[in-house]
């Protein structure tokens, strides 16, 4: 009679393959970020340039709809509609071409840097710092699944900051104006997605590797900001100032993603290295990051 009182029963479901663990790991990482007010504050700041582009395009469409030569009131000032549209279209490049989206991606650089610095410490660094790695690695999955789950979470942040707003801008322009020649429009959309993909792969791997290495917020910020901020003046000094070969710009990794983006969007910036050279450097950095992560994973296995 006794055993009938017991209510325990074995698990009757079927376990998924370990590859399915990517998403739960990423989901936990995402929820860790999403429940922070700080993240939403930074994200709101990050959307400022999106809003400039969004309302800039709207303003352009509205000014276009006015008769040429007529004056329009903008924030209390009288401007000639033609002048306004010219400013927006040629100076700010809000013309729905590849330049618009390339500029948007490039302007998002600082905000992406800040969000990823936060994500790096919160999502990856804390696991090492607070020794929560064994909670993941004690499950029937390999360390690679853990790392890929984290990369997936970082990829979501990258795309929330860059690709998603860029795609919204793309569709906004097409709804304000008419669609152009469909293959051209599609190639532009593919270009945006391609730029986003390059950023996703490169930034995810780099951030996870750097966060595994440094773990703490302040060193991570220093390395990360140096990578984004200091490499630009250094490469400019070498190429523009000292007249070295433009290939020296390849030391600026953010610029390399910019070159890749230009390639995807069909643009050719002057006095810059070729896109495939930038791609090679990014691939090398990714390979370095993967090698480092492999070494780290081996170390974890030895400890286990």
């Amino acid at each position: 009679m006794g055993p009938t009182l017991l209510n325990y029963r074995p698990w009757r479901g079927e376990f998924h393959a370990p590859a399915w663990s990517f998403w739960p790991i990423a989901r936990v990482a995402l929820s860790m970020m999403f429940r922070r007010k700080l993240f939403w504050a930074i994200y709101a700041f990050g959307l400022l340039s999106f809003l400039v582009f969004f309302f800039g395009q709207y303003l352009l469409a509205w000014a276009d709809s006015q008769a040429e030569g007529e004056y329009v009131n903008v924030m209390g000032s009288r401007l000639q509609a033609g002048t306004l549209t010219n400013q927006l279209r040629t100076v700010m490049r809000l013309n729905g071409t590849g330049e618009t989206y390339r500029n948007f991606f490039a302007y998002q650089g600082y905000m992406v840097m800040i969000v990823l610095a936060l994500a790096g410490t919160m999502v990856v660094g804390n696991d090492f710092q607070h020794r929560s790695l064994p909670f993941y690695l004690s499950k029937p999955l390999s360390p690679w699944h853990y790392l890929m789950g984290k990369c997936l979470a970082v990829a979501v942040f990258v795309n929330l900051m860059t690709t998603l707003p860029a795609v919204i801008l793309f569709f906004q322009y097409r709804t304000l104006y008419s669609w152009g020649y469909l293959p051209d429009e599609l190639s532009l959309l593919v270009g945006i997605l391609g730029y986003g993909l390059v950023l996703t792969v490169f930034l995810s791997l780099t951030l996870v590797a750097v966060a595994c290495w440094l773990r703490k917020t302040v060193p991570l910020i220093m390395v990360w900001t140096t990578m984004f901020f200091m490499m630009r003046p250094l490469s400019n000094t070498l190429v523009d100032g000292l007249r070295y070969d433009p290939r020296w710009r390849l030391i600026d990794l953010w610029n390399n993603t910019y070159l890749m983006g230009n390639y995807f969007l069909g643009l050719h910036p002057a006095n810059q290295p070729e896109w495939y050279e930038a791609a090679l450097v990014l691939a090398l950095v990714c390979a370095l990051c993967l090698s480092y992560l492999t070494l780290r994973i081996r170390a974890v296995e030895i400890v286990r």
Binding site: K216, P219, M222, T226, M230, P233, L238, G241, L242
Partner: peptide
């Protein structure tokens, strides 16, 4: 230590830029 080292590394990098100029 990491903070100190990276601060110094940043200094060296900046000195490189200035020195080259």
């Amino acid at each position: 230590r990491l903070t100190v080292w990276f601060a110094l590394a940043l200094l060296v990098l900046s000195m490189t830029i200035v020195g080259l100029q």
